[in-house]
């Protein structure tokens, strides 16, 4: 992995989001939905708490639909238009290309997340929240977004069709969310504790909710980072296998 190549590819990718309406549509919808979820569904004001926990609680569901929309084009479009042939005959490795695209998508999500700062200002205006917990929430949200993006990147490498990429990504991400859902875990209540714990340990929710409580456990961070590495690795393998089709 050469930093020089990654940085050139990263810049091209990131600016490509802003060359089309994708960036603006995504950001507006993201901000709008996180507002709706927090204030309307989450009863932000009625709870009377000066924190952002309601805001973060909805992030997995927000990402479930928004991130696949972001990642569906990542590789599918390159393959469909044939530009993958140009990209991979330039002096870059598949690994460098995969990492750059991922990082650009991640950076873009970080920008969208950053733009929710008025929320943070609002709670600080209304009360005296624990800003460390809020910072942990942002960190957790960003890590979880990374995991969603890495899954999306793999699935986008699998097909030339962006709609298919979107649908499959949603389904796979849903599995990763639901495996920590109380309802699903109750369903396994007959099983030994160890199995229930294993299932829930694979869930985004379990790890994410523990981070946004302000408990930064290294294991949660490692969980998300290793998911990212694993799925990016899959992406590289899939590209190598499927680039010619």
């Amino acid at each position: 992995m050469r930093f020089s190549q990654i940085s050139v590819l990263f810049k091209r990718e990131l600016s490509s989001y802003f060359a089309t309406p994708i960036a603006y549509v995504f950001i507006v919808i993201f901000l709008f939905l996180s507002g709706i979820f927090t204030f309307y569904l989450g009863n932000f004001f009625a709870l009377g708490q000066a924190d952002l926990s309601t805001f973060f609680t909805f992030h997995p569901w927000l990402y479930l639909f928004l991130i696949p929309a972001l990642t569906m084009r990542l590789w599918a479009e390159e393959r469909k238009s044939g530009s993958i042939e140009l990209l991979l005959t330039l002096p870059v490795t598949i690994g460098e290309a995969v990492v750059s695209k991922f990082l650009a998508a991640w950076a873009f999500t970080a920008i969208a997340l950053f733009l929710t700062f008025p929320m943070w200002i609002t709670v600080n205006y209304l009360g005296e929240p624990d800003n460390a917990v809020i910072a942990a929430g942002y960190l957790g949200s960003l890590l979880m977004a990374g995991a969603f993006l890495a899954i999306g990147s793999s699935i986008s490498a699998l097909t030339k069709n962006q709609v298919i990429a979107f649908v499959i990504t949603v389904v796979v991400c849903l599995v990763f969310i639901l495996s920590g859902f109380p309802m699903v875990l109750d369903f396994f209540s007959w099983a030994p504790q160890i199995i229930v714990e294993t299932i829930s340990s694979f869930s985004f929710l379990t790890h994410f909710y523990s981070i946004i409580k302000g408990v930064i456990d290294l294991r949660d961070i490692i969980y998300f980072l290793s998911l990212i590495v694993f799925w990016l690795f899959c992406t590289a393998i899939l590209i190598e296998m499927k680039k010619a089709d």
């Binding site: 490509s16 060359a19 238009s81 530009s83 140009l86």
Partner: peptide, 8 residues
Amino acid sequence: GAPAYPDM
């Protein structure tokens, strides 16, 4: 087919 990045 001279592929390129169309949005650039």
